[in-house]
Amino acid sequence: MEFGPHLMLASLEGAVIASILALTAMGLSIVFGVMRVVNVAHGEFFMLGAVIAWWVASHVGGHAAFGFLAALIIAPLFVGAMAAGVDRLILKRIEYDPDRTIVGTIGVLYIIQQTTLMTFGPDARPVEAPFNTRLALPWFEWGENGFAMFWPWGLSTTSYKLFVIVAAAVILLALWMLITRTKLGLIMRATQQDSETAQAFGVPVGRVYSWVFGLGAGLAAIGAVLVVPIQQAHYLMGHDPLLLSFIVVIIGGLGSLPGTVIAAFLIGMSDGIISVFFSPTLAKIFATLLVAMVLVFRPQGLMGRRAP
């Protein structure tokens, strides 16, 4: 394949990665924004979403779409409820102290990961996509006969990958509406801005925290259910999404939602494109170093305001 079609293919793959990443990172960003805690177990909630998707899909008979649809509903609800439980049982008792929360969620990370290893096992397991038609893509070029359209070999995507991009966009839009247009969102924003004053005005801050923590984990789980027909479920799969989400949330500015989406596309697309043309390890080295440098020299992120 020539450079042009190759680049287009890489950007399409990048867009799929970016969509999943935007959902996962958004979960981390909301939790940080409202609760001011860093959830290190976020990647494991992602992994749990994928594993539950596999479990649900393998227990629902009939067409693959039924299992997938069931997983898309059950996995986020289950993971969200579990995260809310973690919040009630652990985070609330250590009073959301930043340092202790990090150490505590590292503990939760290992508990979830190792319990999955004991029950689900060390193998990677696939989930069948609900639909997976191969779509060949055209390429336009100025050739000898002027402007021409042709179909390069290998330049194709699948209907499912396009669906992932659309689904992620719809969910992010719904989330945006929830936060800016509903009373629930208003309560969340009030808690974010000043939890003590919110409490004084009758906002049940403790319950809001549990809901937000559950919502954040649920978003990661939705991302995982969407990705699992492309990438198999595995008990160690939470590691990369965690690191990438951190990167996205930091670049976008801790707690800034539009910043998070923009950064997710920046990172996802460049990860997709760089990995196609260069060594993925080298790409990751540059990405992590870049993030560390952003934090060192511009701690409020690219879009964020200075944290109070």
């Binding site: 080295i285 992590t288 934090l295 060192v296």
Partner: peptide
């Protein structure tokens, strides 16, 4: 580099540098 940050940012910066170091060993 890392001492320019504090608190949570310090933890993440050190985590990132260590990760970059690990990947460099692999590379």
């Amino acid at each position: 580099l890392a001492l320019r940050t504090s608190g949570v940012a310090f933890m993440i910066v050190t985590l990132m540098f260590a990760q970059a170091g690990y990947l460099t060993i692999l590379y």
